[in-house]
Amino acid sequence: MLIKIAKPSDVKPSEITPKSLYLDRRRFLKTAAVAGAGVVLGTIAAPAPAHAARGPKLEGVVKSKWNLETLGEKLTDYDAITKYNNFYEFGTDKDDPSRNSGAFKTRPWSIAVEGAVEKPGTYDLEDFIKPHALEERVYRLRCVEAWSMVVPWVGISLANVIKHFGPTGNAKYVAFETLLDPKQMPGQNRRVLKWPYKEGLRIDEAMNPLAILAVGLYGEAMPNQNGAPIRLVTPWKYGFKSIKSIVKMRFQADEPPTSWNEAAAREYGFYSNVNPTVDHPRWSQAKERRIGEFLKRPTLMFHGYAEEVAHLYAGMDLRKQY
């Protein structure tokens, strides 16, 4: 047995800065510096181009086990990911979000954490992200409209975020809300949906390791049209579950109302798991068109993430609870 006698000069364990924190500090400083330079250059290089310039590079991003090699598929082109978007707050055409979100202000940004949770409060975005490691997660994305992409997200584990705030026993669901600001989000001037956009997950779904809050893609800060500054990504569900530009997270006992379900309950269920065997009244879900490919490919159960998430729905009739 080794008995270690501490010398007074030894660094006490409590004094060691966790690796994630110092990485985070460096990352934050570099990002801030790059963003600062961007602002300066931006003012010189006016007028702004129609399509906003690419976001600043995110520093300190660690590779995860969900990477390009383990997925074994090709990444979707950056331009496709950033110019073919469903983000109705900026318009209903696929190219509306990239054209109308250039001036969208994502700083300062705060997120309200409410409900059945030990540490409720309104958190500044940087403080919200800081405790957690930034990971690259290469995921498939499946839209309910039967097209799909492969996106290299950068984000933080939603499970870690939830644990950090300490949900109480009553926290059976997590509800999310998008910013409501019709001045900045012109699409909200029309009642395409009941604004603000709302989404939710059952707490065990939210705690699944696959779920992340993404703050970037392709190693760069999140483009506005993709849900800057922070959005949900749940790759085993249809894309509309992955709510964008989040300003509120609420822990509660009851299933929260969700926007598309409110608009057309027969078409969009609360769960909305990717499921090729459950038909949607509008689109067959058996196949999907991968953006950039001609022929459709068969859609996989839970979009290929069955191993990670199927247990969440054991014993449920997914035809009824779609």
């Binding site: 082109d77 331009d79 496709a80 110019k83 073919y84 696929k94 097209w147 068109r289 953006i291 950039g292």
Partner: peptide
Amino acid sequence: LGPKGPLGANPIE
């Protein structure tokens, strides 16, 4: 016919 082209990322659509 790629995402940079005039028909966008989903030319078939």
